[in-house]
Simulated assay, not measured.
Amino acid sequence: MTLLVGVFSLLFLWYTLFPGRVAPETLHYFNAAQVAKGREYALGQRLVFITGFMVQVAFLFWLVFSGRAAALSRWLQQLTGGSYWAGIVLFFIVLWLLLQLISLPFTLYGSYFWQHRWGFSTQTWGSWWLDYLKGSGLDIALTLVGVILLFWLMGHWPRTWWFLAAACLSVWLVVQSYLWPVLVSPLFNRFTPAKDPAIVNMVQNLGEKAGIPVEQVLVMDASRRTTKANAYFAGIGHTKRIVLYDTLLKNYSPDEVKAVVAHEMAHWRQGHIVKGLIMGILGNFLLWGLLFFTLRTTLPAHLRYPIYTWAIVMLFFLMVSFVCSPVQNYVSRQMEKEADQVSVMLTGDKQAAVRLQVNLATKNLSDVSPPAFIEWFSFSHPPAVTRINSILMDQR
């Protein structure tokens, strides 16, 4: 695991700094200046990501293997009068704060300063901090509940806690998919039903053609944070919805908006949300089982897991999520490719779909000719030229 993390990190850094030549076919759709701007924008984003990741991994490695985590947990437990559970809570809070302080410069630069430099961010300094504090508050509250539940399971079922933890997290994934769009997303953005009759009629017609009910088509006030345009699908059951950025409706032609809506409907039609959930749950059980064996070989035999176990768990999942990125992104790219093809079948308009890909990539400063390793490792969507070629070659 450590070797893979090191190899992937160095390859990611190398191809970020030295992306290589531009694929000739890219220049059929984008000029040299557009390609160069996309690469320059991506350079900053990727450097922030990989540097932040390596710093966090290095810190957790030092904390765990230097004995500092064990010493810190003993000291915190003494502060609480020897209370195991109070020590767990204090250790979690201290580690959470340390990791937040370590990652804050990278988060701030990547999501605020870099976005302002390129003219994407419309947020004020105060607005950015308000979002950051709201997100951090949710993170620490939900994670603390999970940590307490994890140590409770470890203490009561020392041999099967990993299975029970995976089951609990799997339930949470389903609940989150159902509740997040209606409870959490509105904390950050305002969502209103699409009111333009042309948009509503277009969505209804596409829904009938696709054979799927359209519960909600919502417009999100994305312009309060960014000039970028996008759309996404979210929720399951009665919380299913297509969300369109207001920047998309403002800056793109009706046939391009139709192509976007058809793409999101294609995700519904092909069952991508449910498939993604199922694959996530299966992977979840596999990873918790691997964590169980990792802890058995890492920690000395105890009647109960020591408080600093949480630092090892954090390091484990940080590294595993990094190493597993290519698998997750490969699955995502296949779903996106399928959604592109089905969307063209629904609209019958390949040219609009192609024009949409060109305009999205140009206006969002996408890297339209990424190095093969970067695409394989970190792209959740195929690059624009790959999507265009797939759309044009599809015979459906």
Rank of each mutant, 00 (worst) to 15 (best):
M393N: 02
V257D: 02
C168I: 07
H263C: 07
D221L: 09
P105E: 11
H28L: 14
L90W: 13
R355E: 14
V385K: 06
Y330L: 04
R355Q: 15
D394Y: 08
A222H: 03
W118T: 04
W114P: 09
N205E: 12
E208Q: 09
Y245R: 06
L130K: 15
F65P: 08
I199Q: 10
R269M: 10
A210V: 00
Q216V: 03
R225V: 06
F285S: 02
N329D: 04
D131Q: 03
D139I: 07
R225Q: 13
W288M: 13
N205W: 01
W157S: 13
Q270S: 00
Q351W: 13
S343K: 03
G276I: 05
A165S: 10
G211W: 00
L47E: 08
V184M: 09
R269H: 08
G126T: 13
F317C: 10
Y41Q: 07
F53S: 08
V368M: 03
A210N: 10
F285Y: 14
C168G: 15
L104I: 05
L43K: 04
A194L: 01
V368S: 08
K37L: 14
V7M: 07
V385W: 09
F30H: 03
S325W: 01
F30D: 04
E256W: 02
Y84H: 00
L183Y: 01
L27Q: 06
F120G: 12
I278E: 09
Y109I: 10
I148L: 08
H302L: 06
H267P: 03
D139M: 11
P326F: 08
A352W: 05
D246L: 11
L299G: 02
L206P: 01
S332D: 07
N230S: 10
L360K: 09
L365N: 05
T298R: 12
G44V: 00
A194P: 02
S66T: 00
L183P: 07
A167C: 10
T16R: 08
S170C: 02
R225Y: 06
F163I: 15
M314E: 11
M220L: 06
G20F: 04
V274I: 02
A259L: 07
W114G: 12
L286V: 15
H381A: 02
Q115W: 09
F317M: 15
R68D: 11
C168A: 15
T386V: 03
R241Q: 10
E256M: 02
